[in-house]
Simulated assay, not measured.
Amino acid sequence: MFMRVLLLGLTVCLLSSATPAIGQAPALKCLAVDATGNVQVTWQAPSSDCGAFFNYYIYFSPSSAGPYVLIDSVASFTVTTYYHVGANADQSSGFYYIESSSLCPNTLSDTIETMFLSIGNTALGTADLFWNNLHTPSVPTNTEMYLLFREDTITGLLQILDSSYQVEAFSDTFTTCGDPVDYQIFMVDSSGCTSASNIAQLGLDISSPPIVIIDSVSIDPVTGSVIIGWQMSAAADVMAYVITIYNIQNLGFDDVDTVYGIGTTFYLDLFNNLNPSDSMLIYAIDTCGNASSPISGHSTIELKAELDTCGGRATLEWTRYFDWPTGVAEYDIYVSQNGGSFQLENTTPDLEYVFNIFRGISYCFFIRARDGSGTKTSSSNIRCSYN
């Protein structure tokens, strides 16, 4: 009986020694990139019930696909940070995992990557920020609240700009006309550490705003002044639009007036600075003084009317409207008799029209052009005749 108990005890011991304890893996929590691209790696220690602890082995790769290189080891169980010099995480993301070595079988952490911040689309007067998460899905103890910092242009210090929850993108309506401005992203972990992205710079704004698209140029029927309408600039930092005309004598542009505010898309020439025959252009100026390029100008329709009272005819002639992308579909001829309201008389693709007139009736005419898309019109000056 004693022998059976002894054998049973030996069997239990052998089985116990054949099934070693399974240790927990270390948990990577934070990666903080400094100004020169070095990385502070922070992790949480695994369970300590595996007896003797040997090392943490830290592996790194500049690519998620590897290969991963053992960059160093930490021999103290209670040391849970490592400063990786030469990671170049200011140039691209760096990828890390940690292996724990003890009496238990070695265990590996998840692989996480540094947050890499990039800035784009500055030509439109915004700083569009894009970055990546440390891991997908998120590290369980991360707050998932990204804190966005921007350099104060006066003090030179990073200051909180905004926050973004679970969204790795942000658009900042900001441009710099002087020194470059720094941005950096931070995220706090509930374990107490903080991850930080690289510092990305918004460079000096030297980009010109996009070309201003003129909708139409018309003549005010009451004052005879030129009216110009255009589309609002897509560049968020535009502060003014300059009305200019093409000077055929010196083959250059003459600025006529300036209107302020990006949402100002209408100009009425109250001081008659413009002539209907002028080729009119608009260019935008942003807050750094960059100007868009003026393109081929729009010219209004200039109407002339010649009366033949003996023959009972009014011959109307007008200049072609320039410069719609879809061209002019047709010209509408409007007529008013004895001061009455204008009525559509006829439509033609030509630049001339003959109208029958009668003695004792006064006539006024104007021409309205319609573009090929059917969305834009331009009206000429008014010509009147009195019999």
Score class of each variant (00 low, 15 high):
83 Y>H: 09
83 Y>N: 11
85 V>T: 15
85 V>H: 01
86 G>E: 12
86 G>N: 05
86 G>T: 09
86 G>I: 03
86 G>R: 00
87 A>V: 06
87 A>F: 03
88 N>S: 10
88 N>A: 10
88 N>G: 08
89 A>W: 00
89 A>H: 04
89 A>L: 03
89 A>Q: 01
90 D>S: 13
90 D>F: 13
90 D>W: 10
90 D>L: 06
91 Q>T: 12
91 Q>Y: 15
92 S>P: 07
92 S>G: 12
92 S>L: 13
92 S>R: 10
93 S>H: 04
94 G>V: 00
94 G>R: 01
94 G>K: 00
94 G>S: 10
96 Y>R: 04
97 Y>M: 02
97 Y>S: 02
97 Y>N: 03
97 Y>C: 05
98 I>F: 12
98 I>P: 05
99 E>K: 11
100 S>T: 06
100 S>P: 00
101 S>C: 05
101 S>D: 14
101 S>A: 15
102 S>K: 06
102 S>M: 04
102 S>E: 03
102 S>R: 01
103 L>N: 15
103 L>M: 15
104 C>I: 04
105 P>K: 14
106 N>K: 13
107 T>C: 02
107 T>H: 08
108 L>G: 07
108 L>Q: 15
108 L>V: 02
109 S>L: 04
109 S>P: 06
110 D>I: 00
110 D>R: 09
111 T>C: 11
111 T>D: 11
112 I>E: 01
113 E>W: 09
114 T>D: 11
114 T>N: 05
114 T>R: 01
114 T>A: 07
114 T>S: 11
115 M>G: 01
116 F>V: 01
116 F>K: 03
116 F>D: 14
116 F>I: 04
116 F>R: 02
117 L>V: 03
117 L>N: 01
117 L>P: 15
118 S>R: 08
118 S>A: 09
118 S>C: 06
119 I>S: 02
119 I>N: 01
120 G>R: 09
120 G>W: 07
120 G>Y: 12
120 G>M: 09
121 N>F: 14
123 A>G: 10
123 A>Q: 11
124 L>A: 10
124 L>P: 05
125 G>T: 04
125 G>V: 03
126 T>P: 02
126 T>W: 10
126 T>C: 08
126 T>K: 07
127 A>W: 04
127 A>Y: 02
127 A>L: 03
127 A>F: 07
128 D>K: 09
128 D>N: 13
128 D>T: 12
129 L>I: 05
129 L>K: 00
130 F>R: 15
131 W>E: 05
132 N>Y: 04
132 N>S: 03
133 N>W: 11
133 N>F: 08
133 N>Y: 08
133 N>D: 15
133 N>R: 12
134 L>I: 00
134 L>D: 02
134 L>R: 10
134 L>F: 00
134 L>S: 03
134 L>G: 02
135 H>D: 07
136 T>F: 14
136 T>E: 15
136 T>D: 15
136 T>C: 10
136 T>P: 10
136 T>V: 14
137 P>D: 05
138 S>E: 07
138 S>C: 08
139 V>M: 11
140 P>T: 06
141 T>R: 13
142 N>L: 11
142 N>Y: 04
142 N>H: 12
144 E>Y: 07
144 E>G: 02
145 M>N: 12
145 M>Q: 14
145 M>Y: 07
146 Y>T: 07
147 L>F: 09
147 L>I: 11
147 L>H: 13
148 L>I: 14
148 L>H: 03
